[in-house]
Amino acid sequence: MSSLQLLQTSVGRKLLTGITGILLTLFLVAHLAGNLTLFAPDGGVAFNLYADFLHNLGPILIIFEIVLIVLFLLHAYIGISIYRGRKKARPENYTYYKSQGGPSKQDFASKTMIYTGLVILLFVVLHVLHFKYNFFIPHETTTLEGREMIDLAYHVEKAFLNPWITIAYSVVMVLIGLHLKHGVWSAFISLGAGNPKLTALLYTIGIIVAILLAAGFLIIPIYIFLNGGL
């Protein structure tokens, strides 16, 4: 079999899920780092300059966006197909089924991967429309360092002064945390982290990453909403 065919078996699919998952998580880390510049005590200048820097990357940005979309869609596609395969592999389900507990990682987070994943999929579409294409708010610009640029900080502030957007956004961030709680660990195992002594440690690392990322993304809307602005 060719390498491409090998990637289509159940193990191959799992390798792809793990790699795309880890890369998407790294993207979240970079995204969060960028977001946190909002907290620089300069009324959003650092944040706007950072956004403007990204916008001016030109072709690099486009390549980056295409790679991200491919990673995201591949990850979602495989996840959905794994879920759809369940019924085929067990046409008649158990009447009584219980988890043994102990080393089992079946919990709310792992059992809802498909749902948290689908919500994230929908969220990302709305999120991009919202903050990249200004679908829901009028375009505001500002002039910094002699250049006119989008006043993204203002967009963010405006969005999170709205209680509904703040609530919806916060809920999704919690769901992303849940997805990562099982996902990060799962990615390590999918990519062959085989040492039995390490698995417990990897699981803990996964939980820490999930909490840090979810909390980081949550701080911004909650702070803006409670503070009545940046």
Binding site: R13, G85, G194
Partner: peptide
């Protein structure tokens, strides 16, 4: 057989205690 989602339920019920590291 279906795909693996790393639930590790297999390890929990294995009568000889084989770790999910076998899958890794």
């Amino acid at each position: 057989f279906g795909d693996c989602s790393n639930y590790a339920e297999c390890e929990a019920v294995c009568p000889v205690g084989i770790s999910i590291s076998a899958i890794a």
